[in-house]
Design a protein around this nucleic acid. Sequence first.
RNA 1: CGGGGUGUAGCGCAGUUGGUAGCGCGCUUGCUUUGGGAGCAAGAGGUCCCGGGUUCAAGUCCCGGCACCCCGACCA
Length: 479
Amino acid sequence: MAEEKLPTRAEDFAEWYNQIVLKAEMADYAPVRGCMVVRPYGWALWENITAELDKRFKETGHINAAFPILIPMSFFEKEKEHVEGFSPELAVVTHGGGEKLEEPLVVRPTSETIIGYMYSKWIKSWRDLPVLINQWGSVLRWELRTKLFLRTAEFYWQEGHTAHASKEEALEEMYRILDIYADVAINEAAIPVIKGRKSETEKFAGAQITTSIEGMMQDKRALQSATSHYFGQNFSKAFEMQYLDRNNTLQYCETTSWGLSTRMIGAIIMVHGDDKGLILPPRIAPIQVVIVPIYKNGAEKTKVMEVADKVFAELKAAGIRLKLDDREEVTPGFKYNDWEMRGVPLRIEIGPKDVEKGSVALARRDVPGRDGKSFVPQTNLAAAVSGMLTEIQSSLLKRATEFRDANIHDPKDYEELKKVVADGWAFSWWCGSKECEAKVKEDTKATTRNMPLDQPKGEGKCIVCGEKADKKIYFARAY
RNA sequence: CGGGGUGUAGCGCAGUUGGUAGCGCGCUUGCUUUGGGAGCAAGAGGUCCCGGGUUCAAGUCCCGGCACCCCGACCA
């Protein structure tokens, strides 16, 4: 049950976030530091996200499989950058069945290595390609500083791993998946993300190209919400993923990998939530509508519940995910606050006056107070409710998009860049050098987020060093 | 790993000069309530982080350990 008030976002954004996660019963802290329990309500949201992704993966020819959680330590040493990137955060199993193991086993932090090993056994001919496999599961990274959903030691995700005959095909795959991520983020989660390419310093350990979708949270920090990588032949050479082409010549595969995690839930909370709690986008909300009956005595209760049951049946038949909150032990006012904390997009209130007038009261979660309330007839309610859910979905996306656009700046010089990234993003020309990137990070704590795929035409001067630059990139403080 | 802080009921906390443990919320039961977080009454609930020491007596004082939180360095 939700408790009393949250701190406001303005007072303490980090604490606001923590309390929403706990009070909305999305997740809880596990006894092991850095690990979380995803509670049923949080998991229901995750299931709705995964359903949308899985559908799109399958539509584009992918298939699911499962690879083991334990990986021989030696696999990690086969790809130099990969081991350098991941070794500080590996959890290692050294004992099994009471005996010390010959070779330590790594709890997977990501599965490129074990999947590479398996692919090398399965791929022999150009006819075996492409291999388009996705896995749903969890991984473990020994994080020093954790936060529910945003960075936990263990987290849930999907990781797709594909092998192709040509570079073109692999790159196409990387972008196809990035499009799917952006589609789900924008059209399902109502988060206006930016698709782009990561800098050399920010890319995945072992990748040749990393692309990401980046979203702006309400504290104006950036959140990398999913990544899609092109590996070239880095992993195929390390794991000998080779095939004979049409000319009977041995070739290395071109591979990709891509992932979206439970971090997306953190993004949804931080993009849409308000000072009363969560606001969930209707398309993925576990509960889209809650019905709160109101009555004073037995006689009123009978009449009100009759209407409430009828409304429930009608909306259910229309395919709306809903709940009738018939708890006797709490007042309607408590229920309003409770469901607002949980982010249910639309509330229907039914009381004696509604029974009399043949109406119900609708309260939009995204428009607090009186402005969000309207009274509609009980007839054709399913159509009215569906229409309003659609409207809430688009209004959330619109609001988030306007907020993002209002907080992306185009500073005219380095001094101004330093100012804007303190409370927003900068979108600036960048020469591509690590030194300029590092300088910004040192001066401002802002890192490069990505170079959007839709680049403005022409060229400019690097915001840091003034040298010629042909790409614009986002600078922002990030999670 | 460095700097700071905190460990007392499910949660948040109080506990004076050392004297045998308390408040709020939550929970249970009953009655009255219910259009924006209801009221009254009666209950249940404790390894005071762990170990040692001082003392007639330790939540309180001393020593050692552990855990967690915040700030830094590192990160999806």
